[in-house]
Design a binder for these strands. Sequence first.
DNA 1: AACAGCCACAACCGCGAACAA
DNA 2: ATTGTTCGCGGTTGTGGCTGT
Length: 254
Amino acid sequence: MGRSPCCEKAHTNRGAWTKEEDERLVAYIRAHGEGCWRSLPKAAGLLRCGKSCRLRWINYLRPDLKRGNFTADEDDLIVKLHSLLGNKWSLIAARLPGRTDNEIKNYWNTHVRRKLLGRGIDPVTHRPIAADAVTVTTVSFQPSPSAAAAAAAEAEATAAKAPRCPDLNLDLCISPPCQQQEEEEEVDLKPSAAVVKREVLLGGRGHGHGGALCFGCSLGVQKGAPGCSCSSSNGHRCLGLRGGMLDFRGLKMK
DNA sequence: AACAGCCACAACCGCGAACAA
DNA sequence: ATTGTTCGCGGTTGTGGCTGT
């Protein structure tokens, strides 16, 4: 059947946005709010596809964007979150107020990656490059809770032997945006106000839940099972993966 | 001053998930 | 249950600016 194109390319502008286009887009969203990107360009009088408008708004025009250089704290947090989440830029961005996934992705590829390589750390595995020849345990998730628990146990055992990020607390809790999470020794994962608005995040579209997520839970361990220390009543839908388990990096880091 | 190479970032593309009909 | 549409994500590309020769 074939996939229908996202827009009629023949009649849309492409490339860099002009100031006028920006102004039109901002004015329209101020007046009508976000949403229905497909019809937005026409309604706003823009010769752009909806996708392009969405990107432009999210990555550049949104009023809550921070812009400017990344701070050392942000830098550090990006590294930690990347070691935990991999290339899940949207999830990482959700924890950095005022930053977009695209911005973080670019920052990672241009600065952080190089910095880690310079320190002799593999930016993919977050391990010393020389140690990469040693076994790499792939954590893959199965629907069976017991298998997931086994995977979690294996992952924890592996982490104990060769932590991917030595200063990373693997009992890290990742909580939905509205979650108050102030536990000791936790990475500060407070959400941005902008992010709160987004449904996606760690609860899936419109399916957020209020519990904190422990590392075991994020690996697919059922609530209450050994290895789970979170307060969620929904053990599996951690990290927004509604239909199944988080394929954590076997879930391969590309 | 002109050119080449590099770098950073904005924008695009393709795919999968979610949702509606 | 199936099919089509829309949205969001991650990878990749294009381009403008900067620096060195």
